[in-house]
Amino acid sequence: MTTPLPESALVDSTPEPSAIGATRASRATWRAFRRMPLGMISLGILVALVLVSVLAPVLAPYPAGYGMDVLRPPSAAHVFGTDALGRDVYGEVVWGTQQSVLVAVAASAIAIAFGTVVAVVGAYVPKLDALISVVVDLTLSLPVLPLMILIAALVGPSTSTIILVVAAFSWPEVTRLVRSQALAVVKLPYVDAARLMTRNHAWIVGRHVVPAVTPVIVVSVVVTASRAVLSAAGLAFLGLGDPTTWSWGRILYEAQQSGAMVSAWWLTLFPSLAILALVLSATLLSIAYNDARNPRNHAR
């Protein structure tokens, strides 16, 4: 998780004691994590979803065009049934996984990167901290959903819009979480010691502050990703998703638009189950990881 900086090449190649400690801690965390069935199941589901998204072309043909069997309930030919244009809902859910995972990964990556940088810089440079705190508080107090809807409606629906909009409203959460941890870290003696070694603040932040807040980042990656999926599905359901790419939200949106929600339960059930699986497992995973990271659980 260390950001590779050119300066790191100058450092003695023998591992620092803190690095060894970190390795030990992560092993202990992993051992504790493996003992948690919920965490492992969640991890399994997330891995499966990622696999589905990568293997989508193998699992189902891209749902396009139309079919003559309109709104058919699940059967052997169409295990998840067909939609109002006779397309296979199974294929839509599979390809929707791809878009959902993409949104989750991209939006949370942007939010995490931006949020972490802002948080760490804020913690490290006290003069900026007040300003950053105000901006974060301000952004957190905004009514997020209406703003997302407004922006998505103005810019026009596309996957990149969705990613940017979700990321734009997710970073303050990350910043707040990371900042509280970073504030404690920058006051520790080893950071002061690092300051004596170099005037390269970027190196200190990259080498010492960011690694110390990594566990918090890991938790927020998962939480932000699941929130991104929910937001993206919500926007897509409101018709603000990309109308040309399959997503879980789009399946729901089209079911609603075609007035089929009342009669065709399979149109809403399967994408909803997919959303539930992703969000629930992400949440459980972050809880399990948090518990596993707690040293008190390592001893047992």
Binding site: A64, G65, Y66, A84, L85, P157, G239, P243, T244, E254, Q257, S258, G259
Partner: peptide, 16 residues
């Protein structure tokens, strides 16, 4: 118009 579900559907077919 996205509010027009029939047109939204056939627009896809025309594109394809």
């Amino acid at each position: 118009s996205l509010q027009d579900s029939v047109t939204s559907q056939w627009a896809q077919l025309v594109k394809e």
